[in-house]
């Protein structure tokens, strides 16, 4: 992999990341950029992110979101990032088309809850307001808010993420081509 040194921006860009209905695999892959993390840290600083453990985000340049939207909480997180980030990047298969979680979409969510809690456990379906309510279908991010960029892949490789982000940070139109463009 050719190591492209990104053009540094005039100031460090603020980046937020979040994981919705996903497996954190995309975040792990993000960390797979390995030593390039050191390059990245010269260019950006992290706001809300599982990496920083900051719970809510302030104004950011780039928001990176992994996972699809499966419940009300996901929607709120997505709204927060959309409201605070200049550009939003959908990272990975679930964010892009719902991914594996969306394979529940042919099932009736009411029947799922009843089956799991009432029929099997003999308990009531929990009504605790702390628990986010499930949407009837798992959706990709762009069906809920405006998304500016997409990085498909399950997960996208560290190289693909690095290429895409450095394009973005350097102000180039980000592009993914063979062999970095992958849906699997």
């Amino acid at each position: 992999m050719r190591h492209v040194a990104p053009t540094p921006p005039r100031r460090k860009l603020r980046v937020a990341t979040a994981s919705l209905a996903g497996c954190f695999g995309c975040h792990m892959s993000f960390l797979d950029i390995d030593e390039r993390l050191l390059d990245l840290i010269d260019l950006v600083e992290f706001d809300r992110s599982p990496i920083t453990d900051i719970k809510h985000c302030g104004p950011c340049d780039i928001g990176i979101i992994e996972g699809g939207v499966c419940n009300a909480e996901n929607v709120h997180v997505l709204w927060e990032l959309r409201a605070n980030c200049k550009v939003l990047v959908a990272l990975g298969a679930c964010a892009v088309n719902g991914g594996l979680p969306a394979q529940r979409n042919h099932l009736d969510v009411g029947r799922c809850l009843t089956r799991v809690y009432r029929d099997r456990a003999g308990a009531a379906v929990p009504d605790d307001p702390e628990l986010p309510l499930l949407l009837d279908k798992v959706r990709p991010l762009n069906e809920v808010v405006r998304i500016d960029f997409f990085i498909p892949g399950c997960p996208p490789s560290g190289d693909a993420i690095w290429k895409y982000l450095t394009d973005l940070i350097s102000g180039r139109m980000p592009r993914l081509e063979h062999p970095m463009l992958h849906f699997d």
Binding site: A72, P129, L133, L134, L135, R139, E143
Partner: peptide, 28 residues
């Protein structure tokens, strides 16, 4: 400049119905 592809709150109808919830967090 953007509206969701579907009615977000209506997408919670089914779960709201099964859980019997009507608190603020059960609304989008």
């Amino acid at each position: 400049d953007f509206e969701p592809a579907f009615d977000l709150d209506a997408a919670l109808d089914r779960a709201r119905d099964i859980t019997g919830r009507d608190d603020a967090d059960s609304r989008l």
